[in-house]
């Protein structure tokens, strides 16, 4: 019961702090803009995807930004775990569920804003879509599922990391995870040994689903694969977080 009162209070806290942390704010605002401009204007000319490159790259940028943005949750969780804040909360009967729930909620809100910025910039430089309302909803739903799953996974990594510095190493990994996928170049242009990973890693079905939905193309069963990945990651993270939190607060 007490978790339910504490959760919104802590979500507000984390959101407020994220807005004030210079790093997180710059990443949420600038990274989307820079990535989009970089891929479209610097690399885009040399990449042949068979479509307008801007259209191809938008889902990739969305995933890189929201994935990386979500991974910053690991740093803030690790920070809370090492700074004694968690002890105070626990001595007030505010447990791990409320604390982590607050982090995941704040991260989700923050990254949805980041997603809105990507779309705004994309539209400003010429991105157009024929997607209908249902397709838009589908794309946003999958993006949200991805953000929630990555935030929960990152919160778990934050519990696993001994220090905030170690947690920030993890964010670096997440930043590059989407590159060996169809995010920016078609997988068939990569060396063949990479195909297995690129085709089957979680970022690929998410990106492919969002791309198909936004371009109003048939999606096949990709959205279900994407949602299955997100659900799996979310459940695994939730299941592992309990014992990890317990271990850190013995």
């Amino acid at each position: 019961m007490s978790d339910l009162t504490a959760w919104p209070v802590l979500s507000g806290r984390n959101l407020r702090m994220a807005l004030r942390g210079v790093d997180a704010l710059l990443i949420s605002l600038l990274l989307p803009v820079m990535l989009l401009l970089m891929f479209v204007y610097l690399f885009g000319g040399a990449i042949d995807t068979g479509t307008e490159y801007l259209t191809y790259a938008v889902p990739g940028v969305l995933i890189v930004c929201s994935g990386y943005g979500a991974s910053l949750t690991a740093v803030s969780v690790a920070h809370d775990m090492t700074e004694g804040v968690v002890d105070r909360f626990r001595s007030m009967d505010v447990g791990g569920r409320a604390l982590l729930g607050g982090h995941v909620t704040a991260s989700t809100v923050r990254n949805l804003c980041s997603t809105a910025i990507v779309f705004a910039v994309a539209f400003a430089i010429g991105f157009r879509t024929d997607a209908n309302a249902a397709q838009w909803l589908g794309a946003l739903g999958i993006l949200t599922a991805f953000i929630v799953a990555m935030s929960a996974f990152s919160a778990m990594m934050g519990l696993l990391a001994a220090t905030p510095e170690a947690a920030s190493g993890f964010t670096f990994f997440v930043l590059f995870l989407p590159y060996p996928s169809s995010a920016f170049v078609p997988v068939h242009t990569m060396p063949s040994w990479l195909h297995g990973f690129a085709d089957n890693q979680p970022a690929t079905p998410v990106i492919e689903s969002v791309r198909s939905l936004l371009l109003s193309q048939p999606t096949g069963d990709r959205p279900w694969t994407a949602l299955a990945w997100c659900t799996g990651i979310l459940l695994l993270s939730l299941a592992a977080s309990g014992p990890l939190f317990h271990r850190r607060t013995r």
Binding site: R13, M17, R20, E83, G84, V85, S91, D93
Partner: peptide, 17 residues
């Protein structure tokens, strides 16, 4: 927990608030 308060060794307040 309802009856106590704990002030730990490290000031457990949020710097960004």
């Amino acid at each position: 927990r309802r009856a106590i308060s704990l002030t730990g060794q490290y000031a457990a307040v949020d710097e960004l608030q």
